[in-house]
Amino acid sequence: MIISFFASIILCMSVKDLVRHFFIPHRANNHRAKALHPKSFLFYILVLAVLQLSFKFVTLIRPDILGIATNINVDRLLEATNKEREQNGMVNLELNPELSLAAEKKAEDMFARNYWAHNGPNGSTPWDFIKGAGYTYIYAGENLAKDFQNSNDVVQAWMKSPSHRENILRKEYQDIGFAVVNGVLNGEETTLVIQMFGVSSSKSVAAKPESDKQIQIAVKPAETANTLGKEELVTSKTVDNNYALGVVALPLFDEGLLLRLISLLIMGSLLTILTIDGFLILRRRTVRIAGHNFAHFIFLLALISIVIISATGTIL
């Protein structure tokens, strides 16, 4: 019905009239740009809903064409981390298999116990996983990230956060370990990135240990190493065993990006039409029955902010 309504309008008008009808308020469109009429909004809603459902369907049957693009790998994370350290006059960190194992076990535990925190619901701390992997540390630290799409964005997000940045640039650290793991957290498909830092007690450290900081991601003074009990390390069935390389999924089109772009295009167009419509109505001092353009403008602006925010991953 809506489509036939729009089709009948289009067929009966010249291009100039059509533009005027859809974007300029005048008598024929009841002094409100046709693109802002309730029927037009219903049309946008239906188009978006059909597109979203089609995307979900294609994602299910052909994830190689349309899907969630992720390209996070350990080599790139290490390179980006060391680049930041180099730029700040710090020595490069070496990839340590024990810290990587600790990161893997931490990721497994997060998926198995379903938590997004430095400390587990059973009281387990990052230091337990580090010691459990056989790494005896003097200083250690942990950075977490989830829902990012590429390695650089993860490191850049950490660098923008003062506490995570402090962790990456800490001069005492000599070793680093990573785990990049796909799984289900709180019922949502998630890519977790665990970054663990440390300096082993077997290596010489010039700096004296600092006071015990309570911030979970910050350093902690040395403790006597002890291994974790078996009950502490639950292996998750939802975890893909591809930690060593990272998580790479590169469909032809990124579903999330495509949906965001279409949504932003619709909202951006509406903002422009609202501005033109509001300006002309104000200038002509037309009295009409309609919602407030300014209120719609503010609401759509807030929605655009939300869409942009939702595109970024989370760090902890």
Partner: peptide
């Protein structure tokens, strides 16, 4: 307009 917002958020 509110429904448009809900559909956009739902899709993401």
């Amino acid at each position: 307009i509110a429904l448009l917002a809900v559909v956009i958020l739902g899709g993401m």
